[in-house]
Design a protein around this nucleic acid. Sequence first.
DNA 1: TATGAATGAGTCTTCATTCAT
DNA 2: TATGAATGAAGACTCATTCAT
Lengths: 201, 201, 201, 201
Amino acid sequence: MEPLERKAQILGHAARLFGQSGYHDTSISDIIAAAGIARGTFYLYFENKRSIFEELLDGLLSQILGRISAVDASPDAPSPREQLIDNITRVIELFADERHMLEILFKGAVGLDREFDAKLQDFYEALVDEMIGSLDQGQVMGLVRPCDTRFAARIALGAFKEMLHERFYNPDREDEDPRKLAAEVLDIFCKGVLEDGVAIP
Amino acid sequence: MEPLERKAQILGHAARLFGQSGYHDTSISDIIAAAGIARGTFYLYFENKRSIFEELLDGLLSQILGRISAVDASPDAPSPREQLIDNITRVIELFADERHMLEILFKGAVGLDREFDAKLQDFYEALVDEMIGSLDQGQVMGLVRPCDTRFAARIALGAFKEMLHERFYNPDREDEDPRKLAAEVLDIFCKGVLEDGVAIP
Amino acid sequence: MEPLERKAQILGHAARLFGQSGYHDTSISDIIAAAGIARGTFYLYFENKRSIFEELLDGLLSQILGRISAVDASPDAPSPREQLIDNITRVIELFADERHMLEILFKGAVGLDREFDAKLQDFYEALVDEMIGSLDQGQVMGLVRPCDTRFAARIALGAFKEMLHERFYNPDREDEDPRKLAAEVLDIFCKGVLEDGVAIP
Amino acid sequence: MEPLERKAQILGHAARLFGQSGYHDTSISDIIAAAGIARGTFYLYFENKRSIFEELLDGLLSQILGRISAVDASPDAPSPREQLIDNITRVIELFADERHMLEILFKGAVGLDREFDAKLQDFYEALVDEMIGSLDQGQVMGLVRPCDTRFAARIALGAFKEMLHERFYNPDREDEDPRKLAAEVLDIFCKGVLEDGVAIP
DNA sequence: TATGAATGAGTCTTCATTCAT
DNA sequence: TATGAATGAAGACTCATTCAT
């Protein structure tokens, strides 16, 4: 088999297994059995167990970033709101297509070791930074009310992650339109949950 | 040593180690070395490695729940807003006192196995249910605008978790007043980040 | 079993196996099978395969050094010649008692890795230094003819090693009196093989 | 590439690697990487790892033997002493030219397995037999004093090996004249280290 | 209640060798 | 001749758990 093809095949099986059972409960034996290859073949393509997981995670993080575009403010572009919703929708769709990846991101890669933790931190930090930029700009334009934008961005990240959770772990929502969820989470983050002009007593 | 005292002592060391190194990278050997006990003694107090971790996690989840009170609507009680902020503040303070517990909750217990995942799910689900109740009531009272309250509650949970993250993993915030953070996250969730009457174009 | 006893037992089996089959052809499985212990038990007493071999080699080198005494020049002591022969004899007897050790020293530990090589080098160097001292002193006393004493000492070492080889690998000599061999090698090193006053043409 | 040329090229790289890292720490991968050939190509020229090492060792032993000539007693020939020194010098020069070979002979091939051990034994035995012949003849001619000539020959071998060691592992001697060393070791073996007419007390 | 020696299933990893192309 | 993907037996090592004392 062609090296690239074989590597992709192994990665595919590994992704499924890591997603199903987590990093520690997936053994090299499991992977090679699923891929139908010999033990040595695995090590022809990956240095060790850690590295195949890392490759998987790196690929996932890149794919996510690849689905997020900076908002295009030119007149011909869709409205900013549309673009934001598009971004969120595309990420939801990514996980809809590769469900295992959600497990890997939300469970498998969490707390594995210091290096993986740092990798995730950095990834989330990059997302947050992106959002801080937009919020800061929004403040300048008078759209965003005065607040700690880093804090707000972090909250947006949490809202977004939990929206994914709701969509993918609540069976009632497994068919829900990604676009609708994207709009919903964006709305809550922008306008909050209270009626206009109302405050908690 | 008194059995209960000894058990508590072992739990303490285990909490620290699990928090520092995670479940898999903490061995029974590490725990007994830290506690200064013999291998067999450990198994006098805990059935196995899993069970000591479970005990730790259960204790943590109880403590969290114990710090959250339902909003008391009686006239003598503090305002609902105060009570909500109090709840959030108490949870922040819990983690400020026992930092390891945050690691255990956010990293150590994530993706460990199906059973632990379910336990965490149930815990978060309980929190969400609580919030749904409040939001539903808010809708009835005309405070909360029409929306999917389960979805909104989930978002609130995500916002809250990420606030904890921001507080405890961002060195710039390690001394920030828990009360202020509690108010801030509550505000964003209630009013959103946009200026009144404004919308994203 | 008492730890020290068990450790000694394992060391004994390992010595035999390393002596018979060499370092690489002796597996942990071989050792534990011979010792009748479980795999984990081995690692209770030795960090790894290398370390048990090292312990064996260190022990051997110490034993050798322990059987060599500096020549005592006091009037009550036996004659220097007797003392030198005693030293050599004791070393021959050591290997006669623990034949495996000879294999370990002459074959098993040779060329294993840089660290073991250095250990052996250092050991031989120490022996050579000892001999250099004696030869230098002999020169001062007019006993030893002018020559490069370091070179001569090295030659003495080679002569001694090959004498051991002859004694232990030539079946005709396996019962030969250690004392006689000691005297013989000492004589050749001191007087050479030529008749007095004769030279190679 | 011409088969013989290719084979020689592979042998050259293998010799260097075996000399540097020893038999076990040199992998087929190392050899083919150094030689710039494919894995399968290696097995076109050598049956297996053992056989390339054997070929190398056999070549080395032949070369050594090829540099040793029986002493020519005819009147036109150089003096016997000259011839002996010439023999020794040529062997020293061989190793000076191919240092790796020394490592292979003194470390790499030692204790590898029973068969290689036997091969080395046989080689040394042949050298010893040669020397026994000369010593016996010397005794007949009244040059060599009465002694066990096999034992003496063995000692000579040991002296010679250790001389090589001194020359090649002692940095102070790396430029020393081979001829001088040859004379020196021959002298010690012939006349010993003591002054004429002196004995150890 | 406490000890700690013993266990052995399970895991990752290496590497000489084969063989279809 | 040459290639290099594939093999799988064999190796070292870990660690949660048990149990006789």
